[in-house]
């Protein structure tokens, strides 16, 4: 009997070893460990054995059972692992194939730039003010110290609708309107972005429609050095900490003194190159101290209040910043242009 059990053990272990799948393994389990299996049968014949041998044989039979069961269990784990590996192998995909495209749109470069500038000035305590694009002659010109007959308000240069109504030629009327709303009490601290219109023939550098961002700060004791400081902060944040600014005297009817602000050329770092036309500087914006006539007309007492104002052209800034060669790109909406500025 002992021999028989050992024989069965070897036979079973061999079959377990040979099993190629779970099913075959199950068959081994049923045929050797089942109630009708050979080990059970051996145990059933134990009654014929002498009493002192029975425990020995019983023990052995249990050992055989257990070792077979353990072998089956081990084999099962092994087979399951193989099966999983097999499945994973079969499920492998080509991860280099393109994904299902998600539609991605983006901002227009002007919007992007204007928001960037808005955010810079909001950070310095400015608010964003807006106003109508179809303006009255009064707000567009007269309130800005450009009385009738002034050369800078030639009919030829503006899109008039009637004698008193026109397409605004700059966003400065928003300044006049906002100041009026403050009823002579400061501070007024705004920037005014928006579309403006001039009688220009469209070509690579001219556009009958373009944008402007103007800024205004009116308070008691505003200094020109404040203007310089604010513009310097703006220029460094917008164009890079390594850029320098300089102010040059200029002329605008609505400011006195008037200046133009240049920034040092990024390409040549002030050495002079084709981008800055050899000067080392690039003109970025016009600015100045608000003319007392402008303050007076908007209801502010120029003996108590003063202020500074500045104005810049986002198209020009974009063209400089990105090397864009034709202003018409901003209004034609060629998607091959639009899609270049998607990164936030």
């Amino acid at each position: 009997m002992k021999e028989r059990l050992e024989e069965l053990r070897n036979e079973a272990l061999e079959k377990v070893e040979k099993a190629e799948n779970i099913k075959e393994l199950q068959d081994v389990r049923v045929s050797y460990l089942g109630k009708k299996g050979p080990i059970t049968e051996v145990l059933r014949g134990m009654g014929k054995l002498p009493a002192e041998e029975r425990p020995v044989i019983g023990q052995l039979a249990n050992d055989v059972r257990e070792s077979i069961a353990r072998a089956i269990e081990d084999k099962q784990t092994e087979l399951e692992k193989e099966a999983l590996e097999q499945r994973l192998r079969e499920e492998t995909i080509d991860v280099t194939l393109p994904g299902r495209p998600n539609q991605v749109g983006g901002p227009h470069l002007l919007t992007k730039l204007i928001q960037e500038i808005e955010d810079l000035f909001i950070g310095m305590g400015f608010e964003v003010a807006e106003g109508p694009e179809v303006e009255t002659d009064y707000y567009n010109f007269e309130a800005l110290n450009l009385p009738k007959g002034h050369p800078a308000r030639d009919m030829q240069d503006s899109f008039y609708i009637t004698e008193e109504i026109l397409m605004r030629t700059h966003t400065s009327p928003v300044q006049a309107r906002t100041m009026e709303k403050h009823e002579g009490k400061g501070p007024v601290k705004i920037i005014c972005p928006g579309k403006v219109y001039r009688r220009d023939t469209d070509d690579a550098t001219h556009s009958h429609q373009f944008t402007q961002i103007e800024g205004l700060f009116v308070d008691k004791n505003v200094r020109m050095s404040d203007l310089k400081g604010v513009l310097n902060t703006f220029a460094k944040k917008m164009f890079g900490e390594d850029r320098e600014i300089r102010l040059r005297p200029s002329f605008f009817p609505f400011t006195e003194p008037s200046v133009e602000m240049d920034i040092s050329c990024k390409i040549c770092r002030g050495e002079g190159c084709s981008v800055c036309k050899g000067t080392g500087w690039i003109e970025i914006l016009g600015a100045g101290m608000v003319h007392p006539n402008v303050l007076r007309m908007a209801g502010f007492d120029p003996d108590v209040y003063n202020g500074f104002a500045f104005g810049m052209g986002p198209e020009r800034i974009a063209m400089l910043k990105y090397g864009i060669d034709d202003i018409r790109h901003f209004y034609i909406n060629d998607v091959r242009f639009l899609k270049q500025f998607h990164q936030a």
Binding site: G105, H108, H208, V335
Partner: peptide, 8 residues
């Protein structure tokens, strides 16, 4: 895609 066209 955001676009800007002429107002006129």
């Amino acid at each position: 895609n955001e676009s800007w066209t002429y107002s006129l």
